[in-house]
Each structure stands twice: as C-alpha cells, then as structure tokens.
Amino acid sequence: MVQQKLRVILLTGRTIEQGVGKERGKASQEYFESVSMCYMDPEDMKKLGVRNNTNILVTTKYGSVVVKAVKYRRAPHTGMIYIPYGPWANAICSHETDSIGMPTFKGIPAQVAPAQNKPVLNMEELLKIEFGK
C-alpha cells in the first residue's frame, strides 16, 4: 500500500556533483541541480509511490522544503534520506549546537511526503521566503 508520509532519518553531506557545482559558481544551474535534490532508497520510494526525479516535501522540526527525489544507486539504505549541503538542506537542519558551536547536520528525524505538484524553489525564491531579502 502506498503511504502518505514516511518517517526517515535525514543525512546531509557532500557529493561530487555538489563539489563540481559549487566551484562552477553558486548561481550556476549545475549547483542548483546538485543540491536541490534528495537521494532516497528505492524501497522507500516505492512505499511512498514516488517516482524517480519527482518532487517531495521533506519536513523536520526546523522547517520544510521541496526537493527532487532521486533514486540512490548504491542501495539499500531504507529509512534514510540524503540531501547534499546547500540552502535547501539548511532550511530543515537543526540549529542545536549542544553548546559546542556545531549545529546538527546529520541524523535528524524527518518526514517525507510526495509533492508532485509543488515546485522546487530556486535559490533567490528560497532566500526570499526564508529571510525576506
């Protein structure tokens, strides 16, 4: 049965595409494509009825963001999703530093829901909504 929501653990980190995109320039299309996405386990995608390269809404205690779901080729890692570092990931990461200066960027409980009809915002739109500038 297809579920409406799926509880997962959110990880963020580097990918080679993000590295390449960042050096191209943060305003580049490469960068946008490399960081406004989310790797998912194929099994999880099946559970949600999400197809490869369609949008999903990821929600945590700290916010929510629309990103593109991409099938992770080196599965399995059910119950985990992976978003490369960038403004999209940070929109939903934890600011808790546990008094050592370091926010929590990995291992955050999150919820995923299909969002075929919601667009992935571009950087300027995202910043406008988040910070009003």
Binding site: Y62, N90, E130
Partner: peptide
C-alpha cells in the same frame, strides 16, 4: 564562505 547557504536557518535570520 557562504554561511547563508551553510548555517541553520535560525542563525542566518539574525545574520542578515
């Protein structure tokens, strides 16, 4: 560096 892209939202809100 690019803290607006890399800091958590709440921190960036005060930064900007």
């Amino acid at each position: 560096s690019d803290p607006v892209a890399n800091f958590p939202k709440k921190a960036v809100q005060h930064l900007v």
